[in-house]
Write a protein that binds this DNA or RNA. Structure first.
Length: 480
RNA sequence: CGGGGAGUAGCGCAGUCUGGCAGCGCACAGCGUUUGGGACGCUGGGGUCGUAGGUUCAAAUCCUAUCUCCCCGACCA
């Protein structure tokens, strides 16, 4: 095997591993403008499966999709003080249209809270109009300094949900519900064991009163915020005058929420499950779940083998499996094995003359790379067995990722312990610090409060940093 | 946006210091032999050397500007 064809190992250089993998697995490519990304068909197919899995859940929880303009009057951003402060530096602005200088510059949406606020104010009069539960599938632009394919690009694709409610309880409930939707999706479909938690004041969304997050650990021990759900209180309702008449005929401001999950999540899947041979995609979301590689010597053997392979493809497809038959004749089987492993296809079926005779196939599983993951299966009842194997792989990925995260999470009772812990993963400890303490820790260690987990021990302890009595445990880590 | 590195065929690179025919490996095309873990032989195609200026008889090579990528820092889904 030529070294040139092997990926840089994760241990050697995780960054280099990620960058070259994204390109070589044909997930994405660079656009001509700094920081922009072209999502290639294979990457987009994965994103489409993410979209479907989420969209189904959004509909089940009563939401509708809509489309809102990408261009937003600049003045909208000045209406909510902390929002403008948060987003002004990273706005892309259109100053010309139709060859003329525009009277008012137009921002390209970095997120749609403002235009949603403007619109909801017009749509809502009565408590009978509430709640409004809308989701947008779109892309947004944020002029980031430092970019990385999928994780942080100037333009990224996502969904943003925007809801308005009559009461704060209802809005908070919605914020939690959608966080749970994300967590359910991440854990059960993407096999990423996320921690549900609340962001500290410092990490909170610009304009939010509460930001909830699903936080995941990547294969290098760093944290990735993989989805967020914000409770805005009445901040945006006041800024945009979103009011309704309550049953007592009194004007009230709405309570709003927003929640989003982006193509960053594709990066999360790559960095959670990927290994030194390439991508390892969770079966439930993999664009191709099963690839069939026919094996034959010469033109004499080929027709029978390919015919059998095609029959297997039909059989699996009939069981709603996403199957690809790799019948390219100019490549050796070994090359194809490596290529489909690079691309993270969960299951590979090899079929050759020997199998034809024996009524069997050779089945390889991506979560156990190389020959160790291979087993012989009978042709009879193959679809059922493959479906079971996919489920087993799905479960195994979650189990492996969970074990990895837990093994790389350290309970700390002192600042020194935290400094050690964050070199390899998360530090978890009692926390009673404030924003200033957090900033100091960040400056000294590059670690931040990833979240205050929603699930807490319940008792109390002593803050590892300030020594004060603490009622909450926080997760610290370096992050993407 | 500051500091560092890089840009030469689709990919990986040599050539740049010391200016003088644009090369190598892989990939690609044709033919033949191959095919159960990255096949081999022969023949062949492919380049405004990131881009734009400048210096020079002559620029991949020297000078200036600019764009993109990577790493480190300040900002973030």
């Amino acid at each position: 095997m030529a070294n040139e064809q092997a990926l840089t190992s994760r241990a050697e250089d995780f960054n280099e591993w990620y960058n070259s993998l994204v390109l070589r697995a044909e997930m994405a490519d660079y656009g001509p403008v700094r920081g922009t990304m072209i999502v290639r068909p294979y990457g987009w197919a994965l994103w489409e499966n993410v979209q479907q899995a989420l969209d189904r859940r959004f509909k089940e929880t009563g939401h509708e999709n809509a489309g809102f303009p990408m261009l937003i009057p600049m003045s909208f951003f000045e209406k909510e003080a902390s929002h403008v402060e948060g987003f002004a530096p990273e706005l892309a602005v259109v100053t010309h249209g139709g060859g003329e200088t525009l009277a008012e510059p137009l921002a390209i949406r970095p997120t749609s809270e403002t235009i949603i606020g403007h619109t909801y104010a017009r749509w809502i009069q009565s408590y009978r109009d509430l709640p409004i539960l809308i989701n947008l599938w779109n892309s947004v632009i944020r002029w980031e300094m430092r970019t990385k394919l999928f994780l942080r690009t100037l333009e990224f694709y996502w969904q943003e949900g925007h809801t308005a409610h009559a009461t704060s309880d209802e809005a908070i409930e919605e914020t939690r519900r959608m966080l749970d939707v994300y967590a359910d999706f991440a854990i059960n479909d993407a096999a990423i064991p996320v921690i549900r938690g609340e962001k500290s004041e410092k990490e909170r969304f610009a304009g939010a009163q509460m930001t909830l997050t699903i936080e995941a650990m990547m294969g290098d021990g760093k944290a990735l915020q993989s989805g967020t759900s914000h409770y805005m209180g009445q901040n945006f309702a006041r800024a945009f005058d979103i009011k309704f008449l309550d049953p007592n005929n009194e004007q009230q401001h709405c309570f709003t929420t927003s929640w989003g999950l982006s193509t960053r999540f594709v990066g999360a899947m790559i960095m959670t499950h990927g290994d030194d041979k390439g991508l390892v995609l969770p079966p439930k979301l993999a664009p191709i779940q099963v690839v069939i590689v026919p094996i034959y010597k010469g033109d004499a053997e080929r027709p029978a083998v390919v015919e059998a392979a095609a029959a297997i493809k039909q059989e699996l497809a009939a069981h709603n499996l996403r199957v690809k038959l790799d019948d390219r004749d100019n490549l050796t089987p070994g090359f194809k094995f490596n290529e489909w492993e690079l691309k993270g296809v969960p299951v590979r079926i090899e079929i050759g003359p020997r199998d034809l005779q024996n009524g069997t196939v050779m089945v390889g599983r991506r979560d156990i790379p190389g020959r160790e993951g291979k087993q012989i299966m009978p042709r009879a009842g193959l679809a059922q067995r493959i479906a079971e194997l996919l489920a087993e792989i799905q479960a195994n990925l979650l189990e492996k990722a969970t074990r990895f995260r837990d093994e790389h999470t350290t309970d700390v009772t002192s600042y020194d312990q935290l400094k050690d812990a964050i070199d390899t993963g998360f530090a978890r400890g009692w926390w009673a610090g404030d924003r200033v303490d957090e900033e100091r820790i960040q400056t000294e260690t590059k670690a931040t409060v990833r979240c205050i987990p929603l699930e807490q021990p319940g008792d109390s302890g002593t803050c590892f940093y300030t020594g004060k009595p603490a009622t909450k445990v926080a997760i610290f880590g370096r992050s993407y």
